[in-house]
Design a protein around this nucleic acid. Structure first.
Lengths: 147, 147
DNA sequence: TTCAATTTAATTGAGTTCAATTTATTTTAA
DNA sequence: TTAAAATAAATTGAACTCAATTAAATTGAA
């Protein structure tokens, strides 16, 4: 290998992970003003997304869906509980497991959150074809990474 | 709009940001064992990537390249300085500005880091066509987000 | 049956991330 | 010229992220 090329793979511009990491953070930043209005952080918001669909889910399964472990989820769920959006209960059949439940107040929050996705689309306007392709590639990537 | 469709945009599976965020974290996790060997975190690693190319750069420009502000960079650069990989100096022409310089030790670290990209490719094996397409879309996305 | 291995959440600690503030310096406009 | 505005970096504080550990409960093998 030519000496001039020896370190090419180490250049920031030749990384696939870096633009992934940067784009992820830049988009999450765009959510902030909208999430501030409903009193959620981005991590709390994606946890609520699952709760809005499932109504009830245990911590382990929620963690698998979000790719987050209990070290991250515990304080996130505590915060959502403190705000009254979810309640937590030990599973009677298996006392190791904790089930998270959507509350009435959490259900009502869904109405206000429903405005957010369309607002984000305005900030982050990839053409629909590109967005779909990106979506497909990201899930393909996630599938290869998850061992 | 049908009631059944009213909240579709709020479903986790219909988000573009979520797989971005999840994939970013999952890949960075793959770096860890390799970065542990050379004593860097991922954030420190991408900062070093810029330094390996530029040798010398001020904090503001580094921040622009990495999409990170001084709130994040200050402790990262302090840690790199403590480990002897970079040195910092106030700019004589503009005392507000700080220039970060690659040290001899930092230069030597590049040899060991050069092994990492190929190891990551083995953990994250998207077909080359897909990887290139993903790369293109991510930079396109970054361009639309950065206002 | 019983005790070792496994599983589930929570906790801990180091490091990151970001908004907001502070400090020091430089630039600009009156 | 000088006072206000702008800029650069550091600091602060809240929250996230993750590896490692801990505690409690369950499972499984001898």
């Amino acid at each position: 290998m030519e000496n001039a090329e020896k370190y090419n793979a180490l250049k920031l511009e030749n990384q696939i992970c870096f633009p992934l990491y940067a784009a992820s953070r830049e988009i999450i930043k765009k959510y902030r003003p909208f999430l501030d209005e409903i009193g959620l952080t981005y991590t709390q918001y994606i946890a609520m997304m699952v709760l809005w669909e499932e109504k009830s889910i245990n911590v382990k399964t929620l963690g698998e869906k979000l790719f987050l472990d209990s070290g991250t989820l515990s304080p996130v769920l505590k915060s959502l509980e403190d705000k009254g959006f979810v309640s937590k209960l030990r599973d009677k059949n298996d006392e190791r497991s904790v089930t998270v439940n959507l509350t009435e107040k959490g259900e009502r929050l869904k109405e206000r959150a429903a405005e957010i996705p369309s607002k984000i689309v305005k900030c982050v306007s990839l053409p629909p074809d590109d967005a779909l392709h990106l979506y497909t590639l990201l899930y393909k990537l996630l599938a290869t990474v998850k061992e």
